[in-house]
Simulated assay, not measured.
Amino acid sequence: MKTENIVTLTMNPAIDLGVSVKQMMTEHKMRCLKTRRDPGGGGINVARVLKRFGAEPLAIFPMGGPSGLMLERLVAAEEVRHQSFMIARDCRANFTANELSTGQQFRFVLPGPTLGEEEWTAGLGLTTAASSSGFSVASGSLPRGVPHDFYARLARNLRVSGGARLVLDTSGPPLKHALDVGCYLVKPSLSEFTEFLGEEPSLEDSHAAAKQLVVNGKAEIVALTMGPDGALLVSRDISIYAKPPPVTVRGTVGAGDSFVAMLILSLAQRKSLTEAFRFAIAGGCAALLSPGTGLASPDVVEQLAPQVEIKSLATA
Rank of each mutant, 00 (worst) to 15 (best):
V214I: 11
A280L: 10
L142Q: 12
I238T: 11
A97I: 15
T96L: 14
V300M: 12
E192Y: 00
L224D: 00
L115E: 02
M1Y: 08
L263P: 00
E4K: 15
E204M: 05
A282R: 02
F193Y: 09
L168D: 05
D237R: 14
P113L: 13
R52K: 08
A280Y: 14
H82S: 12
P188S: 04
A55R: 00
L185W: 07
D149C: 09
F277R: 09
S206F: 13
G40L: 10
T293A: 06
S266C: 12
V7S: 06
L158T: 11
E119K: 10
R153M: 01
P174M: 05
E275P: 10
L197Y: 08
L304N: 04
A130Y: 06
T248G: 15
E199Q: 14
T194W: 04
T127N: 10
P245D: 13
G125E: 09
T128L: 03
V253A: 10
F53G: 05
L265N: 08
A255F: 14
I6G: 05
C285A: 15
G227F: 02
P13M: 03
T293Y: 01
P39L: 09
I264P: 07
T170R: 02
F259T: 11
R153W: 04
L185D: 07
N5Y: 02
S297N: 07
V215H: 07
V222F: 10
P39E: 14
S131Q: 02
L295S: 11
E27D: 14
E56K: 00
V109M: 11
R236Y: 00
G227K: 04
V249W: 05
I6K: 06
N94W: 06
Q104S: 06
G284P: 05
S272E: 03
K2H: 13
F95N: 00
L17S: 02
H28C: 11
G254E: 10
L203F: 09
F135H: 02
K34G: 02
R37Y: 01
S202T: 15
E4V: 01
L17I: 15
S202Q: 12
I240P: 03
L289I: 06
M1R: 13
S272K: 13
G64T: 04
V186K: 10
S171M: 08
N94G: 06
L71H: 02
F85C: 11
G140T: 11
V167P: 01
S266R: 14
L197Q: 02
A296Q: 07
V234F: 03
L185P: 04
L17A: 06
G162E: 08
D16F: 08
A129Y: 10
H28R: 12
D205E: 15
G292R: 04
E199G: 10
P113R: 06
S141T: 08
A88C: 01
A178P: 01
L197T: 07
S139T: 05
S161C: 08
A276H: 02
R278Y: 05
G294H: 01
S239G: 14
G227A: 15
A55V: 04
A242E: 00
A76G: 03
R92V: 00
L50Q: 02
L100Q: 14
S297K: 14
D257F: 06
I281C: 04
K187F: 04
L126M: 06
I221K: 01
